[in-house]
Design a protein around this nucleic acid. Structure first.
Lengths: 347, 347
DNA sequence: CTGTTAGCGCCTTCAG
DNA sequence: CTGAAGGCGCTAACAG
């Protein structure tokens, strides 16, 4: 049995502010003030610091949080932790937050709205100061609990049709519009698209695609529009179907990372060659474009900037008490060249 | 200004156990007991449940944790959140934990020992009940703080040379040994290896490689041994160098996911073809093998089982107070066939 | 089964 | 600048 300075018994008890009170003879208030950066007489400061070293004292953030109602922690909810997209985002968000003196708490929604909902509860329970979220779908109900508790929320990458929350994303419609135009300019007419119909982002990209086609006087063939889930599987199956068609498209636009991956897989398993048999244009460069041969043409999102802005938004929400209307930031994208699109001849 | 039942004022105050005491006329103890699943008179239970609904009461886990000294939360520290390997692990760990009624708190070490160290502190501050960690390197110093506080720790995938902590991993030496043999059986003699010298795991795999070579009477050429960091960049640069050699190896063994990725990238950028010009064998199937052409031969780790065991180990540590010597679990691997290894002719 | 009384570890008024 | 007292929200003994 161990007994500490206060005569408590147990396996292990961390030193508390009281232990250092006992050691220094100072009052709790003085010590607390020191811990929070207040002014203390030099000799007292000495004493306190010595005691802290000696007792290996560390502030109990839980107890502190209980009274201050702050944790200096931001929660992040990603739709799918297995997606490389999530990994990159988390890395950037974490970096920004660290610099700002905040910690990050990550949750995985497993592409499941129920889990997503639980995640918000969990973070709220952990009393995070704010939440950054890449939602699973287009429904924002699960965020209402945060709103009710006045916890700042920022949407990242995927927003909702009409949203009441701060949001940082790319201009999805324009991005898809330009990517489609890139194909059209190279004389492609039979263009297919693989997009998510689950999230708002996917639907926006689909619209950009249609706009570009319409504007070029090209008809959007219904069987060329593969609208489904935001998954590798869907990308794979869609590409498989497209390749099996009697009238194969000459080009395919994959509008997110997962479906891009799946489509490439399907192509590799087939007897067809890119770009000779079919041209491909992807979304989101995450290493994969370098691993795959030929190098994919892709729409590039400014990941780091997106994250910086998202962090900036939560932190300002936290530091300004007054309510303000939600801010929606829309950033531009770039088109990165590759060898996966073959210019067709004038027919 | 809002005033709640107790006359407090402020922007927003969650209902507390006291509010429901006021509403029901019951004592704190009774309510607390109800909340913790104790037996309460039916009529009182009614009252309490009504009050909870009415006030939207939710337990404040922070306050609860302060007194129980438990959080029902496990911390997980991964060496690099951008690695798909991390994503897959986190998903599985999260699933297991959820089923067991525990929450997961994820930290990214950014491949940086300093950050790794901070992460442990962070988790300890958050009073997690246990920690599962995939370490950055072979040093275990950063875990001593956890040990000092008697917080259970389990190492996953990467262990240390001599470790004092529970650990779940694969039999790295045998895995590499078999992979090498696979190449040797196909008459390869000039075999190169790309491995990490940073972590214990990498060094073990290197040993397995050497053993197989020795046993087959083949010499391990020094310039064929690329030992460096566990990164895409290193894999890329190593493969570049190997391909540029006058006496190119006929086969390359990439001993982890990151270097496998990098090596494939380098190959794609080169004028060489796999398996005609060079054969390749990778580690860790994470979709990539399907995206890459030709399909890679790979060593497959039982990811799900690894995670299940890791969770099992932390939870038992948590639930049994007695100290016991550390357990080290070593699981077997499988070799998955592909088209990336060309059998050579009898020379 | 219920109520009372102490804390958990810390911060924050207020006097001095 | 310092000290004493009260409370954050909840649980854990005890009595009854």
């Amino acid at each position: 049995m161990l007994f500490d300075a206060r005569g408590r018994e147990g396996q292990y008890m961390a030193a508390t502010i009281r232990d250092i009170k006992q050691k220094t003879g100072l009052s709790l208030a003085t010590i607390s003030k020191y811990l929070n950066g207040g002014n203390v007489l030099p000799e007292n400061r000495e004493k306190i610091e010595a005691a802290i070293r000696e007792l290996h004292y560390e502030v109990n953030e839980i107890a502190r949080g209980l009274v201050t109602n702050k944790t200096n922690t931001i929660g992040m909810i990603v739709y799918d932790i297995e997606s490389m997209f999530s990994g990159v985002i988390i890395r950037h968000i974490g970096d920004c937050l660290r610099k700002a003196g905040y910690a990050l708490l990550v949750c995985d929604s497993c592409n499941n709205e129920q889990v997503e909902n639980d995640n918000v509860r969990f973070l709220l329970n952990k009393k995070v100061d704010g939440i950054i979220v890449i939602p699973v779908s287009g429904k924002e109900d699960f965020l209402l609990q945060a709103r009710a508790k006045k916890v700042p929320v920022v949407l990242l990458d995927r927003s909702f049709a009409v949203s009441d929350f701060d949001c940082v994303k790319i201009d999805n419609r324009t991005a898809a519009y330009r990517a489609t135009n890139y194909l059209i300019e190279r004389r492609h007419k039979k263009i297919a698209i693989i997009a998510s119909r689950v999230d708002y982002t996917g639907r926006e990209r689909y619209k950009g695609f249609c706009e570009a086609m319409d504007q070029a006087g090209l008809t959007v063939k219904k069987e060329y529009c593969m609208l489904g889930t935001h998954t590798i599987e869907f990308g794979h199956e869609s590409m498989r179907q497209l390749l099996a068609m009697k009238h194969r498209p000459t080009a395919v636009l994959m509008t997110n990372y997962e479906t891009s991956l799946g489509a490439v897989m399907a192509l590799n398993e087939s007897e067809y060659d890119c770009p000779d048999d079919i041209s491909m244009m992807g979304f989101d460069d995450l290493i994969m474009s370098h691993v795959v041969k030929p190098k994919l043409c892709m729409v590039i999102q400014p990941m780091k900037e997106l994250c910086e802005k998202a962090v900036e938004l939560v932190l300002t929400q936290i530091h300004t008490k007054e309510e303000r209307p939600p801010i929606e930031l829309s950033m531009g994208t770039a088109l990165r060249d590759g060898n996966s699109v073959k210019p067709l001849q004038e027919n």
